[in-house]
């Protein structure tokens, strides 16, 4: 939420949400955090997005701890439910690798597992309501906070570049430098004569370089584009039903004036929570719960708020599919590209 203050415009709100917390060298030569998009821009290449790195490392470590707890206790006996769930993921990745990677490598499967789970976790941050963590950061004095690392092109292209380096490494390792260069220059126009080879050298190299470079770009930009678009839609939905955006909470403003007090949000949240909790405990029937929730929504923010909730919910369900699919696609494409690097053409 825009902090409940009425003087933030909608475009400010969106821009604020799309700005990374950047650490770099200011124009005056001192090092520090950028306080605006312009400052971040001015820092040039040698600056770091602190939030992207923080969240991707946290999620990577979460992935490691999650799997390590199972791996440490892994045995061939009857698995616990948690172990079975982890093994299901491992099995899934292993099957994907076996089906798509035609070669032997001890490296591909762990790589695929890491990419799949790590990217899934990073994408999943998108499903946390867009204002929660930034608001928390703001209360701790951090101005900008982008919690979904995969909506930062640096993160996705960083991973894509690693894969690109691996493609080149394996191509040279399997086919040799000559074989790799031959692959880049000997096709798609093939000729047996020396003259033909010389004639086709440049066009072949151009075409093959394009297809080579397309690999990391397709990996990184596709993931980035999907997640960025998804994040943007969440931000737009959040903006529509944010009180104080002018469009929505006319009813509330007429009661509280410009500023809706914090206790109102706390009471509203607690009421909804209690309703859901009582339903889970079986004290209220499902039908009554739905009516109660509807009434609470209407009381809290009017129809627009309710509409926002429903839109958020609907998009979250759809986005859950995208989140999983994009992680899967990144993994599969990595496997396929590395498989191609292992094959002779």
């Amino acid at each position: 939420m825009a902090g409940g203050s009425g003087n933030i415009t909608q475009s400010d709100y969106i821009r604020h949400h799309l700005q990374n917390l950047t650490f770099g060298q200011h124009a005056d030569g001192s090092w520090g955090l950028a306080h605006s998009a312009e400052q971040a821009q001015a820092m040039g290449f040698w600056a770091f997005n602190v939030d992207t790195m923080f969240w991707s490392l946290i999620l990577g470590i979460a992935f490691y701890i999650l799997f390590r707890t199972v791996a440490k206790k892994a045995n061939s006996g009857v698995p616990s439910r948690f172990q079975a769930a982890i093994e299901f993921i491992v099995e899934f990745v292993d099957t994907s690798v076996r089906e798509s990677f035609h070669g032997t490598s001890k490296f591909i499967a762990p790589l695929a597992l890491t990419l799949f789970v790590w990217i899934f976790f990073m994408n999943f941050m998108d499903l946390i309501p867009v204002d929660w963590l930034p608001a928390l950061a703001k209360s701790a004095g951090i101005v900008h906070q982008k919690v979904v690392p995969t909506t930062d092109v640096n993160a996705t292209m960083g991973m894509a570049l690693t894969v690109f380096v691996l493609i080149i490494y394996f191509s040279i390792k399997i086919k040799g430098v000559g074989g790799f260069i031959g692959e880049l220059t000997g096709q798609p126009f093939a000729s047996d004569s020396v003259a033909g080879k010389i004639v086709f050298f440049i066009p072949n190299l151009l075409l093959e370089l394009v297809s080579l470079v397309a690999k990391p770009v397709s990996l990184g930009l596709r993931l980035f584009g999907n997640m960025y678009a998804g994040e943007l839609i969440f931000i737009l939905i959040a903006m529509i039903f944010t009180a104080g955006s002018g469009f929505v909470a006319g009813g509330l403003s007429s009661i509280f004036g410009e500023h809706i007090p914090a206790w109102f949000w706390i009471v509203a949240t607690v009421t909804v929570f209690v309703t859901l909790w009582l339903n889970l405990k079986g004290k209220i029937a499902d039908k009554h719960t739905l009516w109660l929730l509807l009434a609470e929504m209407l009381l809290v923010g009017g129809m627009a708020f309710l509409g926002g909730q429903l839109m958020h919910f609907g998009w979250a369900i759809f986005h859950l599919l995208i989140v999983t699919l994009q992680a899967f696609i990144f993994m599969m494409l990595t496997i396929v590209y590395l498989s191609m690097a292992h094959e002779h053409h």
């Binding site: 950047t22 290449f45 040698w46 770091f48 490691y64 390590r68 001890k106 890491t114 092109v153 690693t162």
Partner: peptide, 26 residues
């Protein structure tokens, strides 16, 4: 949405995580 050195850091982080996975998880 600037390209900056995060791209290098993320690359390094990924390699380390893959190495961990290869060594201790898989």
């Amino acid at each position: 949405m600037n390209i900056n050195a995060t791209i290098i850091l993320q690359s390094i982080a990924m390699m380390i995580f893959v190495w961990f996975c290869m060594k201790y998880l898989w």
